[in-house]
Amino acid sequence: MILRATALSGGYGAREVVRGVDLSVAEGECVAVLGPNGAGKSTLLRLLAGILAPSGGEVELRGRPLASWRRREVAREVGFVPQMVNFAFPLTVGETVQQGRAPHLGAWRPPSPRDHAAVGAALARVGLSDRSGASVQRLSGGERQLVLLARALASEPRLMLLDEPTAALDVRHQLEIAGILGELIAEGVGVVLVAHDWNFALRLAHHLVVLHGGRVRASGTPEEVLRPELFREVFGVHADLIPCEGGAPLIALRSVAQDPRSAPRADRPRQP
């Protein structure tokens, strides 16, 4: 087991956004966290990454309480792909991916050939080797997401945490990212994926965790979790599950079932 969260709660100041969540990720396992807007998905990911301190419960990374790890040690084990990164300064693609080596470098040490190799491998994996000198400000949304993925991969993590990596991406980039994540999972990297797109999540996930109002509403394999009632009760929509040969079912959304505003929700977390 790489990461295990027990009765994990946390939020922003007095506002508790995630309440009593249990979750674990093993080597080569993909856990998808799903839920409506404001369910606490991004906050849960920040708690798992140790970016946010929990108000209750515990996270263990490789069997050791996360609180006892130094931030840089965590960053070597856990690659985190945030939803938003500020590109106010026009770094090049190569410089941005190089930042992923920072957890290995410390304050003074310049990058070694080993670090350059890791950066090169990460760029090659996302197919941006030939764009290394391009400014990130000039990239499309899809390419930026690939750069952020490469930046997290450059630290050669054992666990990847991704916050909606395909939000606002076209289908081609979605498939590219799904392909890269599939390779990583096959190589034994653990993945926690926060997603809105069920069909994207189902391509990869071994285990689903559905959050609603900060609590786990359903948790299990896709077969255990996927039921039309879940969509009605959690998302307020009618959905059909269309069986597919040799894979997870396709989710077809039909119509709105109830006023989603009547559903309980945790407050949307403030972006830090």
């Binding site: 990454a49 931030r71 960053a75 070597r76 930042q99 992923g100 920072a102 957890p103």
Partner: peptide
């Protein structure tokens, strides 16, 4: 958030 994720 991005800096914290990289060990800062």
């Amino acid at each position: 958030e991005s800096a914290a994720a990289l060990g800062v």
